[in-house]
């Protein structure tokens, strides 16, 4: 149906972006498809030690899922920062990804988690790493007729943790001026054995910063390692000046947030290890 429609189409899950675009006249879709009622799209399903999140699961439901919170707290806190309580009742992680905003709160956490997106296209289902979906502001690599049906968050080793931080001028109801997500795993000795660091709102798409991860792998996140992490993040930024922030601000604060997120992720990894 979506592929056959010659005009503009929109897939509606929570509607918190699509409705605004329609009202502002930014989008005048000839076809809006509400996919919430398709089987499985509103479920959080355990799978291979991880969780498969249906594309129509709203943020509030993810926040209420104890198992998901325990396994990927950083991903959940990113999703929970999308909009108000009201928006949380509607907005979905998949919609946040497909909207294509470089400042999307859900996406850095998903990229750091190396989540996998399942797409139902005209030729059937396929899986795709989340980092490959965003293509630029308001654009994705999804083809016409593609529907994201779920996002898979994998199992993780013991002593793993993740965290997401964003900067906004207000405490709530705001768009990230800059954001950072860190996912890491500690060895038995407390040193970082694996890490992924992602930044939001500092480039046309969310960035996966390998140099930042390398700066902390093998370290115990001492001050020098955290400083190197922050420097690597700032160096990777390619932001713009706009109404929400400046190049200098985003560049500097990206490093600060990555450093703080890494510390939180480490503390969570320790707790996860203790719990295990």
């Amino acid at each position: 149906m979506l592929a056959a429609e010659p005009g503009v189409t929109r897939i509606l899950t929570g509607g918190t972006d699509v409705m605004v675009q329609m009202r502002a006249g930014l989008a005048a879709p000839a076809l809006v498809v509400d996919v919430k009622h398709l089987t499985g799209l509103r479920a959080i399903t355990p799978e291979a030690g991880g969780y498969r999140i249906g594309a129509a699961v709203p943020g509030a439901v993810m926040g209420e899922h104890a198992g998901l919170r325990a396994l990927w707290p950083g991903v959940v806190e990113g999703v929970e920062l999308i909009g108000s309580t009201q928006v949380q009742g509607r907005a979905t992680m998949a919609g946040n990804l497909c909207n294509g905003s470089p400042a999307a709160d859900a996406v850095p956490g998903l990229v750091a988690a190396d989540a996998v997106v399942r797409i139902m296209g005209v030729d059937g289902a396929r899986d795709c790493p989340v980092i490959d979906i965003p293509a630029g502001p308001g654009r994705t690599t999804l083809a016409k007729g593609d529907i994201v049906t779920s996002i898979f968050l994998p199992a993780r080793p013991a002593r793993s943790g993740d965290a997401y931080l964003r900067f906004t001028p207000r405490s709530e109801m705001d768009i990230a001026v800059v954001s950072a997500a860190v996912s890491l795993t500690l060895g038995a000795d407390g040193a970082v054995t694996a890490a992924r660091v992602a930044l939001g709102a500092v480039a046309p798409t969310v960035l996966l910063v390998d140099e930042a991860a390398q700066a902390i792998i093998g370290t115990r996140l001492d001050d020098a390692a955290l400083a190197a992490l922050a420097a690597a993040c700032s160096a990777a930024c390619r932001p713009i000046d706009d109404k929400r922030g400046t190049v200098a601000f985003r560049t500097q604060v990206a490093g600060v947030l990555a450093r703080r997120a890494a510390s939180i992720a480490r503390d969570r990894a320790h707790s996860a290890g203790d719990a295990a």
Binding site: G15, M19, V32, R90
Partner: peptide
Amino acid sequence: GRLVCSCLVL
């Protein structure tokens, strides 16, 4: 039972 903004619901 979920709190929503009715302006964002069809």
